[in-house]
Computed example of a mutant assay.
Amino acid sequence: MTVNPIPTRLSSLTLEDLSQTEGMPAILPIGSTEQHGPCLPYCTDATIAEGLALRLAAVLPAVVYPTIQYGYRSNPKSGGGALFPGTIDLSGSTVIALVRDVLLELIADGRRNILIVNAHFENDPFITEGMCLAMEAAGSGANVQCIQTNWWDGLTPETINACFDASDFPGWALEHGGVTETSLMLALAPELVRTERIPSSGLEFVPPAYLRFPLKKGDVPIEGNLSPAVGSTAEKGELILKDAVESIYRACEKEFDAAWPFAIAMHN
């Protein structure tokens, strides 16, 4: 597979540079600012979303827009960030409005193929609503195709089994600060992972079958992560990235405007 070593970031372009990207799709990464346990930083979701977007832009012609660094409130059964300092939670209405407004700006700038890459579990329904509202506001005459995906959506059972060779797969809601996120960070930004703080044993956490407010200590493990990071490796992170890139590439190839110039085939 041929790789473009310098993916196109909007943040590094000039106005003249941008004019050379006409017709290229836009990739919008979305993450969060949220605690991720003892070994991962608050930027984990944003780093994974942006890293995957750049991997995609390295094998297809696209412009990667600045990552949205804040996300919907982190719930105890899928994060629990509100119980820890440093997590910045947005309301659902704010996430919806933010996504809607950014998408409408991209459409106004002439982007007709837009890919949203999400890495924060709780964002999903609010991104969907913002996307729907933007598409309704743009109208069918705008001829816009928009895709939303979470990085975990297209992973094959083989990849999941390979990642959880040393522990049981807890489900994506509880895979917070666990094997997959730690492996992805080891692949994308190893300098940010506190490897010496990866626990040497598993973490047993069974969330209650209900959600209560106000939240109380004990709703989330004091460590901050919801599943063990034991067995995390950069190699597993690369396996996840390869699988996710291929899955998302195929979705874009199927759903986006046929005129999109796919300059690089996935299987040269």
Rank of each mutant, 00 (worst) to 15 (best):
A119F: 03
T87N: 08
W172E: 05
E253S: 12
A258G: 01
G154I: 02
T128V: 08
F126A: 02
P61H: 05
P66R: 11
G86M: 05
Q148H: 12
D89C: 13
R9D: 10
S19K: 13
G224D: 09
G51F: 03
G154V: 04
N75Q: 14
P61I: 05
Y70F: 15
I68K: 06
G80A: 06
L56R: 04
P41F: 03
S200Q: 15
E223W: 00
A26Q: 00
N123I: 06
R250P: 01
G92R: 11
S91A: 11
Y65A: 05
I114A: 05
A187Y: 03
M266C: 12
P76E: 06
S201N: 14
R73T: 13
K236G: 00
K216D: 11
W172F: 15
N143H: 09
E16W: 03
E105W: 09
H36S: 01
L226D: 00
E223I: 14
P228Y: 08
Y65E: 02
I222C: 05
D101W: 00
S32E: 02
G237C: 06
G51R: 08
A209M: 13
I222D: 10
F205R: 07
P125G: 07
V193Y: 04
G37Y: 08
P29V: 00
N143K: 12
G92N: 04
G237T: 05
K77S: 12
E34Y: 01
R194W: 11
E235M: 08
A108R: 14
I127D: 02
N118Y: 08
A209C: 13
N225Q: 12
A53N: 01
A166L: 10
I248W: 01
S200L: 15
I114E: 08
S78W: 00
M185P: 04
A119Y: 06
P61K: 09
V117I: 14
L155I: 00
M185F: 09
A258F: 02
I114V: 13
T149N: 02
N268S: 13
E136V: 14
I27V: 09
T233G: 01
T156C: 03
D219Y: 08
D257W: 10
S74D: 11
A244E: 01
R250M: 15
L10S: 05
H36R: 04
L188T: 06
G178S: 05
G80K: 06
L211R: 12
F169E: 05
R73P: 02
G86N: 09
T2C: 09
P25V: 05
N123M: 03
D257C: 08
G31S: 07
R212K: 15
R197V: 10
S93Q: 15
P170L: 08
C39P: 07
G237N: 04
D89E: 13
A57K: 09
A173L: 09
R250V: 05
R194T: 14
E175S: 08
G86L: 03
S140M: 11
I96S: 07
E16D: 11
S232Q: 04
M131C: 10
T94L: 15
S32D: 03
V117S: 02
Y249A: 03
K77R: 15
G171E: 10
L28W: 03
E158Q: 15
P41R: 06
L106K: 01
D219K: 01
F213I: 14
W151N: 04
S140W: 07
K254Q: 13
D219A: 02
L239I: 00
K254N: 14
D243L: 00
P207G: 06
F169A: 03
I6F: 11
L28Q: 13
Q35A: 07
Q35G: 01
W172K: 11
S167N: 12
V102Y: 08
